[in-house]
């Protein structure tokens, strides 16, 4: 059994990558592997935007990731710099930005630095980028 770090850099709507990452995490866990964490970088951070509003008959990745994280307690880590560039702010980021009531990055997604990615890579057997 192996432990995996998952790195998501592809945008949820511009690519299949974010959904493939979700399916990979699900399959790995169901088969007894462990996921050290999921790190969202570049346009991958867009999936952490809580304001996403999909039509009811379309694939909604945001709630899928949230449910998966709750079920298996896997950390969903979002690079703060990449997220802020794309208008995705946690409550803490919003306070620092002087817009304390406007934030869209909520748990289980966490706003973190690249140090968290490094810790994740150090703790896992291998990494896969989507």
């Amino acid at each position: 059994m192996a432990s995996f770090s998952i790195i998501v850099t592809s945008s949820p709507l511009e690519s299949q990558g974010c959904y493939s990452a979700y399916r990979f995490v699900q399959a790995a866990l169901e088969n007894g592997h462990s996921i050290t964490g999921v790190f969202f970088y570049q346009s991958g951070v867009e999936v952490a935007n809580a304001f996403q509003t999909m039509l009811s008959d379309e694939l909604a990745l945001y709630p899928k990731w949230c449910k998966l994280a709750d079920k298996y307690t896997i950390p969903l880590q979002v690079c703060v710099t990449a997220a802020n560039r794309r208008g995705i702010l946690s409550q803490q980021d919003a306070i620092q930005n002087d817009t304390p009531n406007q934030y869209n990055l909520n748990p289980p997604f966490q706003s973190v630095g690249i140090g968290e990615l490094v810790s994740m890579l150090n703790e896992s057997d291998r990494s896969i980028q989507f």
């Binding site: 570049q42 710099t81 990449a82 810790s119």
Partner: peptide, 17 residues
């Protein structure tokens, strides 16, 4: 923005060892 985000990644991950 890949170039800028690559530089961020290089410098931060190197500074974390």
């Amino acid at each position: 923005h890949a170039g800028q985000e690559s530089v961020d990644l290089v410098l931060a991950s190197a500074s974390f060892g």
